[in-house]
Design a protein around this nucleic acid. Structure first.
Lengths: 110, 110
DNA sequence: GAAATAGTTAAGCGATGCCTTGACAATTTC
DNA sequence: GAAATTGTCAAGGCATCGCTTAACTATTTC
């Protein structure tokens, strides 16, 4: 995966309005107005957030008639999850090595 | 946990330089200069990134003499991981419900 | 104690982010 | 076909971000 997509995905999730949209969409698809209604801002502002989410691949949408229906694309959510999970795993592995080194009487590593 | 901390953590991870710092720190502690050296920017710029990481709680540091040593604080990494994992779980649960509804001949829900 | 090392602070600048209002387009509904 | 609904585009304003250079402090080292 391209790194700048991860940039965009993290940046997208950094905004509470956009996390609220995601929070709504994991429950199932919704229209633009449905997503915008609970947000404390104008409809065009909400659409910008939606565009950010779509640009980074977290959300897909299709227009039918005058109504645009949005849904989560779980792939990118998985990428983000994996990046964080992997780093936490690395950190724990490093902690294990440290523990082993402290337990034994100084094997190998100085 | 406070939401604005999650804002800050996601925003922190949105920058490749800051992810590079995290990537280095999950391998173990490092000094400011060690963290800054591989980055394509001045030392003050790198310190700003470090400050962002520290402000959101992803990194802790202590100064001994003239040298500041930085390390990961896994708690916040865990918070971020959990937020994403939970949302993905919700999405899958919703998908399961949809599947069940399609399989059966329309129980309960309209 | 003079010089090198490690980190910090400050000023400044261009780019980006978030939101608003107002105007407009496309589709349904009556 | 007139009116209401749903979504979009555009211009502009203000704040924040990311980086630079220059100057400065604190600690070691020789």
């Amino acid at each position: 995966m391209l790194d700048y997509q991860l940039d965009k995905a993290f940046a997208a999730l950094a905004d509470p309005a956009r996390r609220a949209i995601v929070e709504r969409l994991v429950q199932g698809p919704a229209t633009v107005s449905e997503l915008a209604r609970p947000l404390p801002m104008s409809l065009p502002a909400a659409m910008l957030h939606l565009k950010v989410l779509e640009d980074c691949g977290l959300v897909k949408s299709r227009k039918a008639g005058r109504v645009r229906t949005c849904r989560i694309d779980p792939a990118m959510l998985g990428q983000v999850e994996r990046w964080v999970a992997e780093r936490r795993a690395m950190w724990e592995q490093n902690l294990d090595r440290l523990g082993a080194w402290l337990d034994a009487d100084k094997p190998e590593e100085p």
